[in-house]
Amino acid sequence: MEFKREDDLFVSGHTACAGCGAAIIIRTVMRALGKDTIIVNATSCSEIFSSCYPTSAWKVPYIHVTFENAAAVATGIAKALEAKGNDHTTVVVIAGDGATYDIGFGIMSGVMERNENVLYICYDNEAYMNTGIQRSGATPYKAWTTTSQVGTVRQGKQEWKKNLTEIARAHNIPYIATSTAGHLIDLTKKVEKAKKIKGFRLINVLSPCVAGWKYPPNLTVKLAQLAVDTGLWKMYEVENGKETINMQPKFTPVEEYFKPQKRFKHLTKEDIEDIQNKVNDYWKNGKGEIYG
């Protein structure tokens, strides 16, 4: 696969931070999708850094409406294309974890249940980054955010990460996959595959965030890969109900993933052991918890 920069459909000039996982994901997704695409973007970092008037980083048609309704707006666009006899343009949602796991979740569930013809890309940076790092349903257990602060009585997020991919799977949609900002060939293949399928498709992509996870910008790809290698983020796809694990974990200790990230710096030895045990349990006994 070779791309020329001039063929990019999500182009430079946007204002994402250095090392932004979301920008890497969106550029990759756009390369795989091609020109015959309409983008619906939920309010998020990606909307702010790509669409500030009078500039735009998009070379395909693009609309942003609100934080919570991208899946429904995309449904309307898909229906309009259907009504007009257009059976080739791909309608794609690009939304963060806040829009997907939380505020837009009910609407998205309806869209999934009706199996609308929409490809939904969630870039999961595990918090509301645009508003300054507040916890979301996707924030991992114990992580610091500005609404899961490290206090004298409670420290970090008290709940485990919501397993969105499995909830989506329960809607019996034709295609679900996970990927990360550190596995761009995997991501490209999944987008290319999803593009050819009709109905609702979800690709949930782990997206390290320099500002929110608090690590040096050169570690974005490395951390995304570590998330998979530790077994915290499961790399898999479900096609018409059939699950394939695309990459087995190497069982790298979870501590190696946590260490470079200051959002985890308050974790105790016991916390890390507890999380490690849960991950081991998940992969060895099908119990426990992981992040994916």
Binding site: G132, T146, T147, Q149, G151, T152, V153, R154, Q155
Partner: peptide, 10 residues
């Protein structure tokens, strides 16, 4: 955020 901190501090 400041109210969250107050809560986390009890």
């Amino acid at each position: 955020e400041d109210l969250n901190k107050a809560y986390m501090d009890g």
